[in-house]
């Protein structure tokens, strides 16, 4: 998929662990891990809202589009 998830980058920038984020956004570590690894098929606005609030960032800081040469 051409949509890249930069959650790990934002976590490093904010010096936060996945477990801490999961406690703040009330989403399980397993689900956040699925999101971080790019295995998720979709993301709810409510989840994006909570992550952006917790990491104090914009949706564009977490998601980015990169042209896939195979597409």
């Amino acid at each position: 998929m051409s949509i890249q998830i930069n959650l790990d980058l934002m976590l490093v920038k904010r010096k936060m662990t996945l477990t801490e984020l999961s406690e703040k956004v009330r989403i399980t570590v397993q689900n956040l891990s699925i999101l971080k690894q790019g295995h998720a098929r979709a993301i709810r606005f409510s989840t994006l809202d909570a992550i952006c609030k917790a990491l104090d960032c914009q949706p564009g800081d977490i998601l980015s589009y990169q042209q896939n040469p195979e597409d």
Binding site: A40, R41, T47
Partner: peptide, 8 residues
């Protein structure tokens, strides 16, 4: 169901 499980 798969779609639902992979919607975060």
């Amino acid at each position: 169901q798969k779609e639902k499980n992979l919607t975060i």
